[in-house]
Design a binder for these strands. Structure first.
Length: 874
RNA sequence: GGGCGAUUAGCUCAGUUGGCUAGAGCAUCUCGUUUACACCGAGGAGGUCGUAGGUUCGAAUCCUACAUCGCCCACCA
């Protein structure tokens, strides 16, 4: 007999429990050929800041996966880490410095990086603690950081390999340029914003063209028209002199089918250096390119009087001038999708620049006597099922994105990150690409200078699954734990990260990075809005919730009701609701502990010896089905279903029925303890803290985290007894219902007469719980007998229950009640009869369905007959 | 413009290979100091499953169209 607190107070236990787990070493599996590996790479949170609900969701789901597999005996490894997140982190530190009036250029590269590293050190340790708060059972001894030495080595190694394979090249290409970050951005790092702008119609030699960016006229080298456009048929291929604000300039007319004949005049001006579409047209037609905007977003020296102006200033001036000079025909309002930097929201300036690229269409992977491009390989592994994406529909999105992927620009003009391992000889202009700093150029000169640019953050995180396991060294970890089992993350980084991991890993490792991709949805507010940090009213802080309701409650609130790929609305009441459930578990255990004798703890459950009542058989049967269902759900990644089933079993089956039933003489400590232990195990992956705390009271040697997952046991199925118990439940519920309808005070005990037919013996045996749960004083249980007058009656199957309520019984009221019930059953009966009369149904429906319906009809008819008989008497 | 998803009780959502008088939690109503739990217990009310067709013995579930909301991708001057 033990006594524990009345209510579970999460804060009192969580930190200690976590410490115990971590110190025990269970988080750190070793390569062990007697076990199967199960590996999850934790998506590394950015080194910028604090844990948000997205992280919390990811941690909750991944921890469920890991704990489940660990209990099943796998060598379950969960590798945690952080991402240096180049642009994001650099921006953050720059913003912080700016508050003190310092720019990064004031400090210089070296000092600035020192600032960044100090900042990162702080925020990494914050993140580490927050991950612990979530109960994440990840292996801290294997924690990695994208900029640590091993990973940086992996980055350089891959770069060199790709370069040598001809996959990495340097070229003058049009790129997304953020003038504020002074850096390139990958295509998918560009966001779009709806903007109302002006569209300017311009007299352009023999043409009329439109533009939202008149300043780009200074860089025009052509006019493009559609090849089928009759209006311009004779002009194609010719050169024209165009009068403009800075005097005459020459353009060529080209035919390109990307031009839309329907729009405007069907003629477009081409600025190859400052528009993606125009750059491509220029490439197809071998047009010259004239760059007029520089990397600060200012007009270049070749722009005459406009030189030095920002693009916006220039636009204003040029429009004014065109108007004066009669070139501007008209302006109209135009809805435009403006490209902006995804980090700092500054409008993107497309410009031609010398950058490093990964060639996605270069056939270099030798396989089956063919050569494949990295893109083809990345498509193949998903198409052939080597990688399965959950939910499946995202495969389509993935294919579409991958098929349309252009060469990936990997150089960034920021300081924080992996510096590109390329050295330029200052004497002979030769380049050296190497994993370590070279001493000399091939020409013998030691006057080398490393490329100042850094690599795109996603280059290093693309290597995450294998670089964290030690690659390029041939480690035991790598051999045993890779490929990883599941990659779990939000669907919003399918392209950013997942696609790149697939590309990089299939190229470097010749194997997939992971076998499954599980995508969770985004957490939204109650009204479905995005949670934003800038709006504290809508934004829930996971740490605050943990403080108030406990980690277990928060975890449940993010897992139950959430299905892969779908967004989840979260609000405080939901979390509070699961806190209540956690407390319910606590109290189920509390009741058990208070009622179980010491010796029961050391007694092993033996079905032959310990099963006593039908209630025992009932709960054991229900438990077996629960084990089966939950295991099945876990295997299929249906965590919400598994959680819901655990919830219902614990609350409804275990607490509301079995524990209630167990009170008094029926208490069976060994069975109760057995059920409780199994429930704690099944629930442990979801609510690790409360279950572990309770496990600690059960005099077990091992911690729950190390226990084995329950296995379905056919021998503990007692279907017949379940049926009987369910009849008993029905009787109790019906009596309770009648009591409520007749406003019988809950405390008042009433008399009951039961004619139970074949269930007589069973009911007699279970008289005590029946009386207690239905608040019955005296009871007569007979096989059969005469109907009672002045009594309310309830029929369950063949059983008749009479409750002589005397003065409370109002004949009219009772008639009404029974009529309603009769009507109800009659309707159901007709439906079933209709179904069963239907030949098509009998012939086509599966036999067990037909049998089930027949049985239901029988039961319905029985009850209906009883009610009719009763009604006739009244 | 292309693609994807959602639409089920007042709110938030389940509903797996079609078998359902359509379930849960919260909210609401009535009652309640019963051998754990008021973070609780008992009982009740609340839905023509977005609309219209179709397939089927049978449709919330499959098909087609439409409507509304949301997301992703592309982007044309």
């Amino acid at each position: 007999m033990k006594e524990i607190e009345k209510a579970y107070e999460a804060q009192k236990y969580e930190d200690d429990i976590y410490k115990k787990w971590e110190e025990s070493g269970v988080f750190s599996p070793q390569p062990d050929t007697s076990k199967k590996p199960f590996t999850v790479s934790m998506p590394p949170p950015n080194a910028t800041g604090v844990l948000h609900l997205g992280h919390a969701t990811m941690l909750a789901i991944e921890d469920i996966m890991i704990r489940y597999k660990r209990m099943q005996g796998y060598a379950a490894l969960w590798v945690p880490g952080t991402d240096h997140a180049g642009i994001a982190t650099q921006n953050r530190v720059e913003t912080n410095l700016l508050e003190k009036g310092i720019t990064r250029h004031d400090l210089g590269r070296k000092k600035f990086l020192k600032e960044v590293n100090t900042f990162v050190k702080g925020s990494r340790s914050t993140i580490r603690n927050q991950i612990r708060k979530m109960g994440a059972s990840c292996d801290w001894t294997r924690e990695r950081y994208t900029l640590d030495e091993g990973l940086s080595k992996a980055v350089r190694e891959v770069f060199v390999r790709m370069f040598n394979d001809g996959l990495i090249y340097r070229g003058d290409r049009i790129v997304n340029w953020c003038p504020r970050c002074s850096s390139t951005l990958a295509d998918d790092e560009v966001d779009y914003k709806d903007k109302h702008e002006k569209l300017y119609w311009i007299k352009y030699g023999p043409f009329r063209v439109a533009t939202t960016r008149p300043e780009t006229i200074l860089g025009d080298t052509a006019v493009a028209v559609h090849p089928d456009d009759k209006r311009y048929k004779d002009m194609i291929g010719k050169e024209y002199k165009i009068s403009g604000v800075l005097g005459d300039f020459e353009i060529t007319v080209v035919a390109d089918k990307e031009v839309d004949m329907e729009f405007g005049t069907g003629a477009i001006k081409v600025t190859p250096a400052h528009s993606f579409a125009d750059f491509e047209i220029a490439q197809r037609h071998d047009l010259p390119s004239k760059s007029v905007i520089d990397e600060d977003g200012k007009m270049k020296g070749n722009c005459g009087k406009y030189a030095g102006m920002t693009t916006l200033e220039c636009r204003k001036e040029i429009v004014k001038d065109m108007e004066k000079m009669g070139f501007l025909e008209k302006t109209e309002d135009f809805n435009h999708n403006l490209s902006i930097c995804y980090r700092c929201k500054t409008p993107i300036e497309p410009l031609v620049s010398r950058q490093w690229f990964i060639a996605v269409d270069e056939p270099v992977i030798k396989e089956d006597g063919k050569k494949k491009t990295i893109k083809e390989k990345a498509l193949e592994v998903v198409r052939n099922g080597d990688i399965e994406i959950i939910p499946e529909r995202f495969s389509k999105t993935y294919f579409h994105w991958m098929e349309n992927l252009h060469d990936w620009c990997i150089s960034r003009q920021i300081w924080f990150g992996h510096q590109i391992p390329v050295w330029y000889c200052q004497d002979c202009n030769e380049i050296t690409v190497a994993t370590e700093t070279p001493e000399k150029c091939t020409c013998g000169s030691s006057n080398l200078k490393q490329d100042p640019d850094t690599l795109d953050t996603w280059f290093s995180s693309g290597l995450w699954t294998f670089s964290t396991l030690g690659w390029p060294e041939k480690t035991k970890d790598l051999d045993f734990f890779h490929p990883t089992a599941v990659l779990e993350t939000g669907y919003d980084i399918l392209f950013f990260w997942i696609a790149r991991m697939i590309i990089m890993t299939t190229y470097v490792m010749k194997e997939v990075p992971f076998e499954k991709v599980y995508l969770h949805g985004l957490i939204r507010t109650r009204d479905g809005k995005k949670m934003s940090k800038s709006d504290p009213a809508t934004c829930i802080d996971p740490l605050d919730m943990i403080e108030q309701y406990g980690t277990d409650a928060l975890r449940l609130s993010m897992v139950i009701g959430s299905t892969p790929g779908n967004d989840l609305r979260l609000y405080e009441e939901k979390i509070a609701g699961y806190r209540n459930f956690v407390n319910k578990i606590w109290n189920a255990a509390r009741f058990s502990l208070m009622n179980i004798e010491e010796e029961a703890f050391s007694t092993e459950f033996d079905p032959q010896k310990h099963i006593k009542s039908r209630a025992d058989k009932w709960i054991l049967t229900k438990l077996q089905y629960l084990i089966k269902d939950v295991t099945n759900d876990m295997e299929k990644f249906r965590y919400s279903d598994a959680g819901t089933k655990n919830y219902n079993f614990t609350w409804c089956e275990l607490c509301d029925w079995y524990v209630e039933f167990s009170k008094g003489k029926h208490l069976n400590p060994v069975v109760l303890l057995y059920v409780l232990k199994n429930v704690l195990k099944l629930m442990h992956p979801f609510v690790p803290f409360v279950t572990e705390v309770l496990w600690g009271h059960l005099q077990e040697e091992k911690m729950l985290i190390e226990e084995s997952w329950p296995v379905f046991n056919k021998k503990l199925l007692f279907d017949k007894e379940v049926e009987e118990m369910e009849i008993l439940h029905q009787i109790i519920s019906d009596i309770r219902s009648v009591r409520a309808q007749y406003s019988v005070e809950p405390a008042k005990k009433i008399h009951a007469v039961v004619y139970a037919g074949k269930y007589t013996e069973f009911l007699k045996k279970n008289m005590a719980p029946l009386r207690r749960m239905a608040r019955i004083g005296s009871i007569d249980i007979l096989e059969k007998g005469d109907k009672l007058e002045k009594a309310v009656c309830v029929f369950v199957s063949d059983i008749e229950v009479y409750l002589p309520l005397n003065e409370l019984v109002d004949i009219e009221k009772e008639k009404k009640r029974l009529m309603k019930e009769q009507e109800n059953l009659q309707g159901f009966k007709e439906q079933l009869e209709h179904k069963l009369k239907n030949k098509g149904f009998i012939d086509n429906a599966p036999k067990d369905i037909v049998e089930k319906e027949k049985k239901r009809l029988e039961e319905t008819e029985k009850s209906l007959k009883k009610i009719k008989g009763q009604l006739e008497q009244l």
